[in-house]
Every structure is written in C-alpha cells, then in structure tokens.
Deep mutational scan, measured.
Amino acid sequence: TEEFVRLWREAVRHNQTLHWNGTDFIPGDEWAEEFARREEEKL
C-alpha cells in the first residue's frame, strides 16, 4: 500500500525496523527489500 511504502522509506532512511501487520520489515533484509520493491511497483 501507499502507506506501507511511505513508512518503509522512512524506516530505511533512519535504518529502523518497520513493524507492519505483525511483521518486522528490516532495512537490508533481502525478503523485506523484495516485498517493498513489489509494493512500490504497484503504485
């Protein structure tokens, strides 16, 4: 979602874990980066 992408970019900028829907998205984590890339492509 647009909100997820916005929060993810913020988390990456501050190198912080994003807690989203009970899942931890960690900047630099391969799975999280791939998920975020797919979400961005949907926008």
Score class of each variant (00 low, 15 high):
19 H>E: 05
2 E>W: 14
9 R>D: 06
16 Q>R: 14
12 V>D: 01
35 F>A: 04
24 D>N: 10
31 W>P: 03
32 A>S: 15
34 E>I: 08
13 R>N: 09
42 K>M: 08
9 R>M: 09
19 H>S: 12
43 L>C: 14
5 V>D: 03
37 R>M: 08
27 P>D: 01
14 H>D: 11
7 L>K: 09
28 G>V: 01
17 T>I: 15
10 E>A: 07
31 W>R: 08
16 Q>Y: 14
28 G>R: 03
13 R>S: 11
24 D>I: 14
43 L>S: 06
38 R>E: 05
10 E>G: 01
10 E>T: 05
11 A>V: 02
3 E>D: 12
19 H>G: 03
12 V>W: 06
32 A>E: 00
22 G>P: 00
25 F>R: 01
6 R>T: 07
29 D>H: 08
24 D>G: 03
2 E>F: 12
16 Q>P: 01
41 E>V: 11
5 V>A: 04
12 V>F: 04
15 N>P: 00
27 P>T: 02
4 F>Y: 03
38 R>W: 06
42 K>N: 07
13 R>V: 11
6 R>S: 05
36 A>T: 03
20 W>V: 03
24 D>S: 10
25 F>Y: 14
31 W>N: 06
5 V>Y: 06
22 G>E: 05
30 E>M: 12
37 R>H: 07
16 Q>H: 11
25 F>V: 01
36 A>G: 06
9 R>H: 13
35 F>D: 00
34 E>C: 15
9 R>E: 09
38 R>I: 09
14 H>W: 12
9 R>W: 13
25 F>I: 03
18 L>E: 00
39 E>R: 08
18 L>S: 00
16 Q>S: 10
22 G>Y: 04
26 I>M: 12
30 E>Y: 11
35 F>W: 10
11 A>H: 05
7 L>F: 05
20 W>Q: 00
9 R>G: 07
40 E>N: 08
3 E>I: 11
1 T>K: 07
29 D>K: 04
11 A>E: 00
26 I>E: 09
34 E>W: 12
24 D>A: 12
18 L>G: 01
17 T>Q: 05
3 E>W: 10
32 A>V: 03
11 A>D: 00
11 A>K: 02
27 P>V: 04
28 G>I: 02
2 E>T: 10
2 E>Y: 13
18 L>Y: 02
5 V>Q: 04
10 E>L: 11
8 W>P: 00
21 N>V: 04
22 G>D: 07
1 T>D: 11
33 E>N: 07
43 L>E: 04
25 F>P: 01
36 A>R: 02
2 E>G: 11
11 A>N: 00
9 R>A: 10
7 L>H: 06
37 R>W: 04
2 E>D: 11
8 W>K: 00
40 E>Y: 13
28 G>A: 02
11 A>Y: 05
19 H>K: 10
2 E>L: 14
20 W>L: 05
42 K>G: 05
24 D>Y: 12
43 L>Q: 06
6 R>G: 04
42 K>Y: 07
14 H>M: 15
39 E>N: 08
9 R>Q: 11
5 V>K: 03
25 F>W: 04
31 W>S: 06
11 A>M: 03
38 R>Y: 07
40 E>T: 11
22 G>N: 10
22 G>I: 04
26 I>S: 10
14 H>G: 10
36 A>Y: 08
8 W>I: 01
26 I>Y: 09
41 E>N: 11
35 F>I: 06
11 A>C: 15
33 E>K: 06
8 W>M: 02
1 T>E: 08
41 E>T: 11
3 E>S: 09
7 L>P: 00
25 F>G: 01
39 E>I: 15
4 F>P: 00
7 L>D: 02
14 H>I: 13
6 R>Y: 11
1 T>V: 13
27 P>N: 02
41 E>R: 13
42 K>A: 09
21 N>R: 15
15 N>A: 09
1 T>Q: 09
13 R>Q: 13
37 R>E: 04
33 E>W: 07
19 H>F: 08
25 F>M: 07
10 E>V: 06
9 R>K: 13
14 H>S: 14
4 F>C: 07
1 T>Y: 12
15 N>I: 04
5 V>H: 05
28 G>H: 03
23 T>G: 06
13 R>G: 06
13 R>H: 09
12 V>P: 00
41 E>G: 09
12 V>Q: 10
39 E>P: 02
22 G>R: 04
29 D>G: 03
30 E>H: 12
25 F>Q: 00
7 L>A: 12
26 I>T: 15
7 L>Y: 05
40 E>A: 12
23 T>A: 12
36 A>L: 05
